[in-house]
Design a protein around this nucleic acid. Structure first.
Length: 419
RNA sequence: GUGAUCGUAGCUCAGUUCGGUUAGAGCACCUGGUUGUGGUCCAGGAUGUCGGGGGUUCAAAUCCCCUCGGUCACCCCA
């Protein structure tokens, strides 16, 4: 086994082909889906002044205990981003682009946590943020984008849950009543939830513990605390989803881990995926955040989708698994290798995915390498071909006869065979 | 941060209960099966500080302690 210091750090991993290709294609598909809706890409730094993330809320574990923070040589207190919404909204506040500002992003985020299935210390997300309007149909657009994205990957066992957390005032009133409810039965609550209650009562609703189940079921319902305004917003969101035939369930217990959400909150759960971490995406509205980050009061809505988890869900459903061969043509050269040098270059320039064997190995070894490469056709150059200015083509996938052709006709011939 | 479980060749694993000859298998890899031809078959070959450190013992992959890492769950979240 390798020396400890030469292993990927705890909670991180190397992603090799073909997984690396799936990650890349996932981003390609995402960018296509959101591009069709007018979202442009924004690339923000992977680290920020720590204050940017602290605006996400002191009660959230993500900033309280999971952040990778450090001092740089200039004495600045920085942190690797644990998510990208804060960075994107910071960028909005800094540059004041025209609204509505509709953007998408991708890239790694960092959280200091214990790894488990679908959870890593460095994990990758794709997401969108749309700032500048309160229109409930924008909430619908955002949710629909995520939905269509899952569809395009081939996923069918994704469940959308939505809730409204109300306006800020509604939230305060609800949290008040909720706290009273739990405090009344404090001794029945699990020890962990008692602690959560102190820090952030809303989150008690998120507890998975058996012991808390009954108390959570009998807890007051957020829906009953919505102001007229928030109620109307929520209804229009649901109408919009219905109009698009996107199935969803209202889950009044759905609370998001990040404190900035108001009104719409939603989560995508992969039902195919038997792990505790089965939320593959989530988001909501964050109308106060731009102001908190030094911008003008601007409403916003967005989501983040976990790439790693989404790919795990794909695996569980058996979709999005294809990984095409990276080679079409394989050059075998038994004359020393120089012929292969120019031939591969020529074929690559003509647009064929071309590879070759190295180290001047035996014909047999080179043919084995050609087969393993997944190539469809081997182009063979031996002493004979070299002398007559020809090459031999051999089909590696069908048992057809091989043929010897003039070297200058090779591109034309390969086009006919492969295109 | 808490708990459970695991760590032997590149990969999947056997061997660990009751310590004892040069630590094994399959896959993958390399060479060959006559002098230029892959995918099947056959023959041969290379490969391990048995995660790391310490201890017990005549003797440790095997027992004990510490540590690092993986996996899963709690927590939290994507």
């Amino acid at each position: 086994m390798n020396d400890l210091n030469f292993r990927a750090p705890k909670g991180t991993r190397d992603i090799l082909w073909p997984d690396s290709e799936r990650h890349q294609r996932l981003v390609d598909i995402f960018s296509a889906v959101v591009g069709e809706a007018g979202y442009t890409q924004v690339i923000t730094p992977m680290f920020e002044h720590i204050e940017v993330f602290q605006r996400l809320g002191d009660a959230t574990d993500v900033v309280r205990k999971e952040m990778y923070d450090f001092q740089d040589k200039g004495g600045r207190h920085l942190a690797l981003r644990p998510e990208q919404t804060a960075s994107v909204v910071r960028a909005f506040a800094e540059h004041r682009p025209n609204i509505p500002w509709k953007v998408w992003y991708t890239g790694p985020n960092f959280r200091y946590e214990r790894a488990q299935k679908g959870r890593f210390r460095q994990f990758s997300q794709v997401g969108v943020e749309a700032l500048g309007t309160e229109d409930p149909y924008l909430d619908v657009e955002v949710m629909a984008l995520a939905w269509r994205f899952y569809e395009r990957l081939g996923l069918s066992q994704i469940k959308l849950e939505v809730n409204s957390l109300g306006n800020k005032d509604d939230r305060v009133r609800f949290i008040d009543t909720l706290s009273q409810h739990f405090e009344k039965y404090l001794k029945d609550l699990s020890e962990e939830s008692q602690k959560t209650l102190e820090a952030n009562p809303l989150r008690v609703l998120d507890s998975n513990r058996e012991q808390d189940r009954d108390l959570i079921a009998s807890a007051p319902n957020m829906i009953d605390f919505l102001s007229e305004d928030a109620k109307k917003h929520f209804l229009l969101v649901q109408e919009g989803l219905n109009a698009l035939d996107i199935p969803f369930t209202v889950n009044s217990k759905l609370v998001r881990g990040l404190d900035y959400y108001v009104r719409t909150a939603f989560e995508f759960v992969a039902e195919s995926f038997d792990a505790a971490q089965n939320a593959v995406g989530g988001g909501g509205r964050y109308d106060g955040l731009a102001e908190d980050l030094g911008g003008p009061p601007t409403p916003g809505v967005g989501f983040a989708i976990g790439s790693d988890r989404t790919l795990l869900a794909c695996e569980a459903e058996g979709v999005f698994q294809t990984s095409e061969s990276v080679t079409e043509v394989f050059v075998v050269d038994t004359t020393g290798g120089l012929a292969a040098v120019s031939l591969t270059d020529q074929l690559r320039s003509a647009g064929f995915k071309t590879d070759r064997a190295w180290d001047n190995r035996s014909m047999k070894a080179q043919m084995k390498a050609a087969d393993k490469s997944g190539a469809l056709i081997a182009v063979i150059v031996g002493e004979e071909e070299l002398a007559t200015d020809t090459v031999t083509l051999r089909d590696l996938r069908e048992f057809t006869e091989q043929m010897e052709i003039k070297k200058e006709t090779i591109i034309e011939t390969l086009r006919k065979r492969l295109r």
